[in-house]
Computed example of a mutant assay.
Amino acid sequence: MRVSALEKTANYVILSLFALYAIFPIVTIAVTALRPKIGVTDPGLHIENFAEAWELGKFGSALTNSVLVALLVVSVALTFSVLAGYAFGTMRFRGSTFLFYLFLLGLMVPAEAIVIPLFFDLRTLGLTDTIWAVALPQIAQSVAFGTFWMRSQFRAMPPNLIEAASIDGAGGLRALVRIMIPPALPSIATVAVLMFMWTWNEFLIPLVMSPSGVWRTAPLGLSIFKGQYTADHALLSAAGVIIAAPIVVAFLFLQRYFINGMLEGAAKE
């Protein structure tokens, strides 16, 4: 299908407007973070706002906690998602449909509905105020989506790949590692980025599962900082940039795989 010059121009104009609409809030926050804070009259760029926000908000421990939780959640959830998606996508066994829909319950039940009884269960086990209390509920949520995503990926692959691996004497795990995972890397990277973003931005579960604040994560630290420095927009914006920076960096490193994975998913639909 041929596209006229007018249609191409209209597409570029519309996409440019949407891009500006998406980028404008980000640019606004970045510019505000460099403005003078309250009581400062110097009109220049104030990079020191980031250092001051870091020190006042004590974001070092919060960011460390978020990194540790995110690494634990993503590594465990991604491993389980690939294994479960491989089983549901390539194997036929009794009860597979029921088990798959049981996994999907993790997508249907909101965290707000179960976080309180889950807190009491974890407290009984002595896990509250530990990394496991913060990570385990998020692992369960991430595995539900990851299994759904990876099942679709593995089901879209040619069945003769598994048959050829079986003929060559490769077992199920070896076929997964050597045959199925390499072409699925874009989808795996997409799931990893999404899991990292969701875990990094999670607010309710760390708030409830760590009552003493030992495992206070970055969003909780930003919330407390916002309550203390509500009127100083420069410091608030600097703190927001600090909290968002790891997500931006992770996306920039994995954007090629992320976009490829999203495009492959759209093509399969």
Score class of each variant (00 low, 15 high):
G126L: 02
G60R: 04
G261S: 03
Y12S: 03
R155I: 11
I47P: 04
F145K: 02
A133D: 01
Y21R: 07
P25M: 05
W198C: 06
P211T: 05
H46T: 11
A238C: 04
G126F: 07
G227C: 08
A164Y: 07
A53L: 07
G60Y: 07
A84F: 15
F18V: 15
T199Y: 01
I205V: 14
A53S: 12
I29W: 03
T124D: 12
N201E: 12
V214Y: 11
R155Q: 14
P25F: 09
L222R: 03
L99H: 14
S152A: 11
A164H: 07
A22E: 08
V208S: 04
I162C: 12
A22P: 01
G227I: 06
L122G: 01
T90G: 05
A175M: 00
A62G: 00
I29K: 06
R178H: 13
I224T: 15
T199F: 05
G261D: 08
V193H: 05
T130L: 06
L20K: 00
L194Q: 02
V249K: 12
L220I: 14
T128E: 04
G60C: 06
I224W: 11
V76K: 05
W215M: 12
G172C: 00
F98E: 13
A231R: 15
A266G: 00
E112T: 15
L83C: 04
I114N: 04
L105W: 06
M195V: 14
Y101A: 08
I247G: 11
F59D: 04
S96L: 06
T124G: 11
E269N: 10
G106S: 08
M91E: 13
R35D: 08
A30N: 02
A144C: 05
S223V: 15
L222Q: 01
L122W: 09
V214D: 12
T124Y: 09
T147Y: 10
S61F: 15
A53D: 13
S66N: 03
V191I: 14
F80R: 02
A84K: 07
I167H: 03
R216G: 13
I247Y: 07
P137W: 02
R123I: 05
K8W: 12
Y86V: 08
F59W: 11
